[in-house]
Structure formats: structure tokens, C-alpha cells
Design a binder for these strands. Structure first.
Ligand SMILES: [Mn+2]
Ligand SMILES: [Mn+2]
Ligand SMILES: [Zn+2]
Ligand SMILES: [Zn+2]
Lengths: 140, 140
DNA sequence: GTATTATTAGTAACAGTTACTATTACTAAT
DNA sequence: ATTAGTAATAGTAACTGTTACTAATAATAC
């Protein structure tokens, strides 16, 4: 039934470019650079393929509040820091496994990244009790 | 020079409603409920005042990826968890001061919130080296 | 090579938020 | 109390990032 996804030149170019850069580009930025070699590619194609690559685990979304969505070709476990001045996103690779206190962490990251670290943002996600039981209902 | 901000009935209603609910409403949701008592209020007024209240530290933005902006009348220090099923946002008040390991934390929050906790998202923000020195330049 | 159909380019639609503008209504000074 | 000055408002238009639609194209299996 299900045909394999095709490996079009558009898809290949998008993935290659994303893997190449370290800038966590937006769809628009990728579109602009890929257009230099494939002038007729459309922005929709870039979006569609980026989302597809994310689904397949070959890319990741990098989302900050009030900023447009960015994508990352590096799917290894790492954190991100965004500059409140220019909006760019840099990587933070931490190999510490033990937990550290918040103030220590800020100081540590300041040294590691050369950023003036203002703070962090921690959010959680999951299934609320209602949605949990609704989901269980549906299974029966 | 600078006039005081006026305390209009629109502003008062918005703040009161926001403080009253625990749902982290969107601007649209606040607009809908406030319209029941002030039918002519405009959505723009709700947005403008919410942003103003945030600037003044009387409210906070609650922003999750892929979701519309929400606001919180509770500015005390607490975390948020969003349901991936229905999108609602609940509070997490943690009085633990010591750091805890990630897996412990997830278990702990599961018990505390009754959510099926899928994970967390940690991001950092600050000033990059370039913006830091640009800022210093401007001061001279 | 031919048939099948996933993918594409181009464009329109959409949603959330912000900007604009003429009018209204607080506030403070007279 | 009246007035002058101006912050704030309602209503609406514009904007921005993303998604949806559709006819044409091109990757793959046979
Ligand atoms: Mn990264
Ligand atoms: Mn809250
Ligand atoms: Zn910067
Ligand atoms: Zn839910």
C-alpha cells in the first residue's frame, strides 16, 4: 500500500543545507540559500520537507517564544541559548549528568558560552488527567 | 513630562478577570468573557493592556511552542505544564530548593500533578558576545 | 518505456498579533 | 465647574509566519 517517500533533489538539498549550517535557520533562511542553486524551489516545499524530516527524526524544531520557528539538523541531545539582542540561537552541549543548582548553572554556562546569561525557561508537557482517561476510553 | 497611566474601566476589568481565573487565558478568551459585561471592548484593547500589565510586572506571558500566547495573573515563581492533548496549561509550584535529577523530577511531577509527564523543555537566553560588546560601545 | 502517484511550484487562505486613526474620556490646571 | 491636554479606546486594516489547495511534474516500480 504505502509507497516509500521519494528522495527528490529538493528534499536532498534541504537536508544537506540544514546539516551543513550551525545557525538553526528558519524555513525562510533555508529557502533563500537553496534558491541560489535551485531558483524555482518554493517556500512551501521547504516547510513541508522540514516538517517531514522532523517526523522522521532527521531534524528538530527549535522554538523560542516570540520568534519564528527554527530548525536544527543536529538531533543529538543538547540545549539552546537565544540572544535577546539579535535573536540568534547557539548550542550548549553539556556532558554533566549530575544535577546542578540554578545559580551554579548560570555561571557555568556564562563561562562555557561567553554569553551574558540572563536566565532559563523550563516548561513541562504531558497528558492531563482528563485526556489520559479519554484516551483510555477510546482504546476499549 | 510623563503622565501617569490612567486606570480605565477596561484596564481594571482585564486585570481583575486575569487575576480571578486559573486557566492562563489567551487574549481572545479574556476578550470573550469581558465582553459579557463590556460588550464594546475591542480585542486590541485587551492585547494592549495585557502587554502593559506584563511590562509593569502585574502579569506574565505564558508561551508554549505552537500555541497561541497565554497570560498569567499569578506572577509568583512557578512552572507550567501544558497538556499535549487539549492544550491547557496548569501550574506547578515547587518549593524544593535543591536540584534534583531529571528522571526523579518527572516521577515527582507525575505524582504532584496527576499528569502523564512526557518531558520537559529547557532553554536559555542572554546576550551573545557580539551584542554584549555592541552594547558597551553604545554606552561610550 | 509506461503507468502510477508522491511531490512540486505557485498561489491563496488562514490565524494571531500589531498598527493606524478618528473619537472618547480621564486628569490637572485654571 | 470649565477647559485644555493627552492617554486610551473602538473599529478596522495591515502584517507575518505558516498551512492548504491544485494543476503540473517527476521519481519509482514494473
Ligand atoms: Mn542546536
Ligand atoms: Mn501559572
Ligand atoms: Zn546577539
Ligand atoms: Zn488535556
Amino acid at each position: 500500500m504505502n509507497r516509500k517517500p521519494r528522495f527528490t533533489k529538493q528534499r536532498k538539498l534541504i537536508l544537506d543545507e540544514l546539516k551543513k549550517v550551525k545557525t538553526h535557520p528558519t524555513a525562510q533562511e533555508l529557502y533563500d540559500s537553496i534558491r541560489k542553486v535551485l531558483p524555482n524551489i518554493s517556500l512551501g516545499t521547504v516547510y513541508r520537507n522540514l516538517e517531514l524530516l522532523c517526523q522522521q527524526g532527521m531534524a528538530k524544531r527549535v522554538e523560542f517564544p516570540e520568534a519564528q520557528r527554527r530548525y536544527d539538523g543536529d538531533v543529538s541531545r543538547h540545549y539552546h541559548i537565544q540572544c535577546v539582542g539579535c535573536g540568534k540561537v547557539d548550542d550548549i552541549y553539556v556532558n554533566e549528568t549530575r544535577a546542578i543548582r540554578e545559580d551554579e548553572l548560570i555561571r557555568f554556562l556564562g563561562i562555557k558560552t561567553n554569553y551574558d546569561v540572563h536566565g532559563q525557561k523550563i516548561d513541562f508537557f504531558g497528558l492531563c488527567p482528563e485526556c489520559k482517561s479519554r484516551k483510555n476510553q477510546e482504546k476499549l
